[in-house]
């Protein structure tokens, strides 16, 4: 079961990484001057955010191979949750971006940085620190969504406990243990995130 928990964390972290990359580009696209780019991102976010994650996982694992894109079990989950997280993180970053006062980017331009350098060196760090609390929530919800990987027989915690409960009829023990492990993991992650948050808070 602990191995399953570790696998769940691994999947969650990988999906978060994909989601962060998507979210970063998509959030800057929402403030871009090109209309088609903004529309594209808006459609992506509205569509993906409203999809059940289980459907996305099944889509990547069972449907994409039919058009020649083949993933393993774990990779399917990571890809699906990454896309799902990408939509949520886009929203998080967009909110963080619009909260930055205009003076900050003007300050960057005033000391002679080019617009793209202002974005990378001035805006990006501030935006990231603004976004940390909401990112933490997103991470916890992705971690909980990794339990859906049991639906396509990835051997993470939920699948393991289901297997134990049906193999050995230790129904009570296995499910109580699974619940306790998930709650403990979530509380620990939340505490850790709180620590990071306090560390990175903008004074």
């Amino acid at each position: 079961m602990l191995i399953g928990l570790g696998l769940g964390l691994h999947i969650a972290l990988s999906s978060l990484a994909i989601g962060l990359v998507i979210g970063l580009f998509a959030a800057f696209a929402t403030v871009s001057r090109r209309l088609w780019l903004r529309t594209l991102v808006r459609v992506y976010v509205a569509f993906l955010r409203n999809q059940p994650p289980l459907l996305l996982i099944f889509f990547v694992f069972f449907v994409l191979p039919r058009i020649g894109i083949r993933f393993g079990r774990e990779e399917s989950v990571i890809a699906a949750l990454g896309l799902y997280a990408g939509a949520q993180i886009t929203e998080v970053f967009r909110a963080a971006l619009t909260n930055i006062p205009k003076g900050i980017s003007e300050a960057g331009l005033a000391i002679g940085l080019t617009p793209s350098r202002t974005n990378v060196f001035v805006i990006l760090p501030v935006m990231f620190r603004n976004a940390v609390p909401a990112l933490g929530n997103t991470f916890i919800s992705i971690f909980k969504d990794t339990s859906l990987a049991a639906g396509i027989a990835v051997t993470e915690l939920t699948w393991q406990s289901r297997k134990i409960s049906t193999d050995s009829f230790a129904v009570l023990e296995s499910w109580i243990a699974a619940c306790l492990l998930y709650v403990a993991a979530c509380l620990l992650i939340a505490q850790f995130l709180l620590f990071i948050e306090r560390h990175l808070r903008i004074p």
Binding site: D145, T146, S147, W175, C179, Y182, A184
Partner: peptide, 13 residues
């Protein structure tokens, strides 16, 4: 703290 699927399985089993 308990994921939705685990809740459903726990109630069901």
């Amino acid at each position: 703290g308990i994921p939705g699927l685990v809740k459903i399985f726990t109630v069901f089993y």
